[in-house]
């Protein structure tokens, strides 16, 4: 088991490394495809009337004058060892882990990101709990009573759920609950530690709009999985040996049916943690997604790189956790 964990973790690390390299290369190439010179790139970091010397200085500082691989290498070095840039009276230090340093507003990227992680984390975790509970419950009930009124209704709603764009659901919710009947107005993110009740109150609408989309999917997925497993032989065996139906469902049926659900949950959560871009936009939440959108709008390369890497990190880690959980539950996995 230990060896398996090590192997998987190592593979995940490698994956992150590759993703970061590709990200780096893409953002290196993109401006060139769009026809920008490195001088123009550098000029964006200075502001008014950049003098040729200033451009040269920035190019040197940012390493625009070096080949791609050594720029990437410097980036990796900064990640583990921090970096220093010469500005002003004292050199600016970019502390470990140096996810980059934004020359546009003289900020280290990492602290900016960590500031926003709680927002996205709150949004994603809250929504995830909501959709897992509602989605799986609905799916199980539907599967146990296929073709019942509940099943048809639930699956109808689920289909509607996956067909609605989250920015439409979100906007509708805002219109109804924040404007027409302002029971949930003035939605501002509040730290959980400051005021848990306001935290939940102000996040409930984004949670619902996200969860509506996802629980629909999870209900469909759970239902399909349950239908499949409940017709398996071992379920019949379990019933035959006189197990209470509730136990048959929870202990045998659900466990197998949830396997694909958990896999997908890992992917979804990973993606969401890297920034729920649209939801954050609709509800004006200042999370990772909003940060990314802003960084892209500002064309602030260090920020874009940092946030992309963080998002990739979340995806890989969530998938890794799911893999390890499997290995824990099902010994066959770690042997294969």
């Amino acid at each position: 088991m230990f060896a398996y964990i090590i192997r998987r973790t190592f593979a995940a690390l490698l994956l992150i490394l590759v993703v970061s390299a590709v990200t780096f290369a893409i953002f290196f190439l993109l401006p060139r495809i769009a026809g920008e010179t490195s001088d123009q790139l550098a000029a964006q970091y200075i502001g008014k009337n950049p003098s040729p010397e200033a451009i040269a200085a920035v190019k040197k500082n940012l390493g625009f004058d070096q080949p791609l691989y050594s720029q990437y290498w410097n980036f990796l070095k900064g990640l583990v060892g921090g970096a220093e840039y010469k500005f002003g009276p004292d050199p600016v230090t970019c502390h470990v882990p140096c996810f980059g340093y934004s020359f546009k507003n003289h900020l280290e990227v990492w602290p900016e990101l960590t500031k926003r992680i709680p927002v996205t984390l709150s949004l994603a975790i809250g929504a995830a709990v909501l959709w897992l509970v509602s989605g799986v419950t609905t799916g199980v009930i539907s599967a146990l009573k296929p073709r019942s009124i509940f099943d048809r209704l639930a699956m109808g709603v689920a289909l509607a759920g996956v067909s609605l764009p989250v920015f439409f659901t979100g906007a509708l919710l805002l219109t109804v609950f924040s404007y027409e009947w302002p029971i949930l107005d003035n939605l501002q993110y509040v730290n959980f530690t400051d005021d848990p009740i306001m935290w939940a109150r102000n996040l409930i609408l984004p949670w619902i709009s996200l969860a509506f989309l996802y629980s629909a999917l999870y209900a469909r997925l759970t239902r399909a999985g349950m239908l499949e497993t409940m017709s398996e032989d071992y379920i019949r065996t379990a019933r035959a040996k006189g197990l209470v139906e509730r136990k048959v469902v929870t202990r045998h049926g659900l466990r197998a049916a949830l396997t694909p659900v958990v896999t997908i949950f890992g992917m979804d959560l990973g993606l969401l943690l890297g920034g729920a871009l649209i939801t954050e936009q609709v509800f004006s939440l200042q999370g990772i997604g909003a940060f990314a959108v802003q960084a892209i709008a500002d064309n602030d390369l260090p920020k874009i790189l940092g946030v992309t890497l963080l998002a990739a990190f979340f995806i890989v880690v969530c998938n890794l956790v799911v893999d390890l959980l499997y290995a824990l539950v099902d010994p066959r996995v770690r042997l294969s």
Partner: peptide, 24 residues
Amino acid sequence: DVFLAFPLLLFAIAISTSLQGGAF
């Protein structure tokens, strides 16, 4: 695996933004 580890939407936005003016 590598592709699946990419934050897709983020990339899509970045690419669409930088190629807005004209390319190819």
